[in-house]
């Protein structure tokens, strides 16, 4: 474990807690894309298949349980909770996430470390995580006023993967044969997708104006 990875995991944890806080306390999911939340639940479900078979560390297992539990409970809140679901913007959140899942699955069948179910699922989860934010970014473009919690949620979600890139660089230089192209390329693509959001988020913070993305 290195400081970059710990920072990444804590930032990722904070993004999930910010979202749960928003949904649980003010009972609103305005501006949040259910599609992205469902994609994240699928990412964790396919990545943590080995949660009960390969024990890495207590930390690893606890964090996996937190990410699985929070992502599925957020989807449940947005689908089932009578108050929260009322604030869900169904008309605007129309990104057909099936068109993200299928290419990632096909790519995982071709590009994987080993053609086994677990390895293909693991590669699929990495490709899917890279693009899972797209429905959320599209929704942000459409909904003019982005409230602070939603902006912070997306920012933290992007920042966590950026920390992971520093973690991979660090591990590449400190651990022999630490080379994982699938993880690196997916993580880089994922972070680049946030680039324009970061640009507008930083500017809105610098000029102390409300965050809004150009149409």
């Amino acid at each position: 474990m290195n400081i970059f990875r710990l920072a990444g995991d804590m930032t990722h944890l904070m993004s999930v807690l910010v979202l749960l806080l928003k949904i649980h306390t003010i009972k609103s999911c305005a501006g949040i894309s259910l599609k992205t939340q469902e994609l994240y639940a699928l990412v964790f479900a396919t990545r943590y298949l080995d949660i009960f078979t390969d024990f890495i560390s207590v930390y690893n297992t606890i964090m996996k349980l937190i990410f699985l539990g929070s992502s599925f409970s957020i989807v449940w809140y947005m689908r089932r909770h009578k108050l929260v679901r009322r604030s869900y913007d169904k008309e605007q959140d129309t990104f057909r996430h099936f068109f993200l899942v299928l290419p990632c699955l096909l790519l995982a069948l071709v590009m994987n470390e080993k053609f086994t179910f677990k390895e293909v699922m693991w590669a699929f989860s990495l490709y899917l995580e890279a693009v899972a934010i797209l429905p959320q970014l599209v929704l942000l473009q459409r909904t003019k006023n982005i409230d602070n919690l939603t902006g912070q949620y997306v920012f933290l979600l992007g920042a966590y993967r950026a920390f992971y890139i520093f973690n991979w660089i660090y591990r590449y230089f400190t651990e022999p044969h630490y080379v994982h192209w699938i993880t690196w390329i997916s993580g880089l693509v994922q972070t680049l997708l946030y680039a324009d959001f970061f640009y507008y988020y930083f500017n809105s913070w610098k000029n102390n104006v409300k965050l809004h993305l150009p149409a």
């Binding site: 995991d9 390969d54 890495i56 690893n60 470390e113």
Partner: peptide, 10 residues
């Protein structure tokens, strides 16, 4: 032999 790397990251 082809080493499958341990998935120790989240």
């Amino acid at each position: 032999e082809e080493c499958i790397h341990v998935k120790d990251e989240l």
